[in-house]
Nucleic acid binder design. Structure first.
Lengths: 247, 247
DNA sequence: CCAAAAGTGTTTCGTATACACCCATGT
DNA sequence: ACATGGGTGTATACGAAACACTTTTGG
């Protein structure tokens, strides 16, 4: 990338990944590029992020950074907060590192936080940035990170759970076609709760924007489940009708 | 105020005011201090706002700016968005003005938007900044403002309506003691809808955190209404119980 | 035929909605 | 006595929740 950097504002991204086996995970990277001794201390892990360009929209910064670390374009991204503590970088060692790597005298950086959702069964892990040793960490096993990145993850997770109830975020975390039980397990995992399967199906199947396919699982040693798709147009139309006074 | 300014980041505040007679209003100020000819063009109106201090928390900036324009401390304030278009200030005249008033070469300013809620029956209008000719504008009669301030108000209003359904924002807009009908009118005004009075009362009166007082209206030429208060502690306790899996 | 997960209906309970009249006060 | 807004109760409809067994496939 050949552009001028704005050294006052950065973007950090909480990349949530989901697969049916392990549940919700967060993508973390090494602080240092090509750091072979990455495991010597967990204090050097961080969220994918970076300073923005002088004339760059924040959404574009976030997209650029996400692509840099995952190789992926057109992934769901949403801004959720600003972290502005004037002293958030003033952790001797961390700050020294930042000045070194950017060659800029850093005074204060406020960071705009985004979260991103991706289905780990759709995108393979092999596309992840190797030079920063990007790796997935289960949501309950996040190590201590540099700066205020633990706080950012916490607020991101909180936001995800809140918005999950209102926005159709679940479909970002599932394959294009999915079974009702996959949807239920995802929902239970995110909200840390559980539902009665019969009642859950009833609630889902009455939604017109979730459409059944004439397509069933194959080669499974149990009754094959039916696949469904999310119809975004129908969802938006219905949302308009119901919530027109709010939104 | 005697501190160094951070010329890259500003705070703008959508101050919502409410009274039972006129409904929801927004506080706007003149772009120029002591501008007697303020009425000659509405293009010079804006939201209360300003650049942050070098070592200032954004919440403190917002509080400082709100006090500067209204004289009020300890008012509800909430961050709701970031406006980061790199070209948001590049409106010839507006930008020239900004450079003149700050004496700083402005490159790009991203602004963090807050909204604030205040009860116009509790705080008198006389405290408002006279030098900037601060005035209230009904929500449907917002004139064209400088920069992207119309867009900021729109998103602020949208956020208010969304969060009004979940958070106890209504009590910020009412006096400490209020009647059920005042609460209903407020809710109807904010959400632009209407409710059946009997059903509304039923729903409200079953909430344990809204407590009746042994206090009724006086000197009104109709049946005096009972006053109620919002018990914040009880509200928080109940919210914890119900939404513990979300928050 | 066994294991494993998919799929199916009914009853009960509580909450949301619709709806019309009497009450207390000041003038 | 009248004008003004405050306050009340019931019946119905709808959605939420509780609950256990049968079905289909691969091995």
């Amino acid at each position: 990338m050949n552009f001028d950097i704005n050294p006052h504002i950065s973007v950090d991204i909480v990349v949530f990944g989901f697969d049916q086996k392990d549940g919700l995970k967060v993508l973390l990277i090494n602080r240092d590029k090509n750091d072979i001794n990455s495991s010597q201390t967990s204090k050097k892990l961080k969220l994918p992020g970076g300073l923005i360009g002088k004339n760059e929209f924040l959404n574009d910064s976030a997209r650029r950074i996400l692509e840099e670390f995952t190789g992926l374009k057109n992934i769901f991204l949403k801004q959720f907060g600003v972290f502005d503590n004037p002293y958030r970088l003033k952790n001797g060692d961390d700050l020294k590192w930042l000045k070194q790597t950017t060659n800029i005298e850093i005074e204060r950086v406020i960071t705009i936080a985004y979260y991103s959702l991706l289905n780990l069964e759709k995108y393979s892990l092999t596309e992840l940035s190797k030079s920063y040793n990007a790796r997935w960490y289960a949501i309950n096993e996040i190590p201590e990170l540099i700066f205020d990145h633990n706080e950012i993850i916490e607020k991101g997770l909180h936001t995800l759970r809140k918005e999950f109830l209102i926005e159709p975020l679940c479909f970002e975390l599932l394959s294009d076609k999915f079974t009702i039980n996959q949807l239920q397990k995802l929902t239970e995992n995110i909200l840390q709760t559980s539902f009665d399967n019969r009642n859950f199906r009833k609630k889902i199947l009455q939604l017109q924007y979730i459409e059944p396919l004439n397509d069933w699982q194959k080669n499974v040693n149990h009754k094959p489940a039916r696949y469904y798709v999310f119809n975004k147009d129908k969802f938006l139309k219905q949302k308009e009708e119901v919530l027109s006074f709010i939104i």
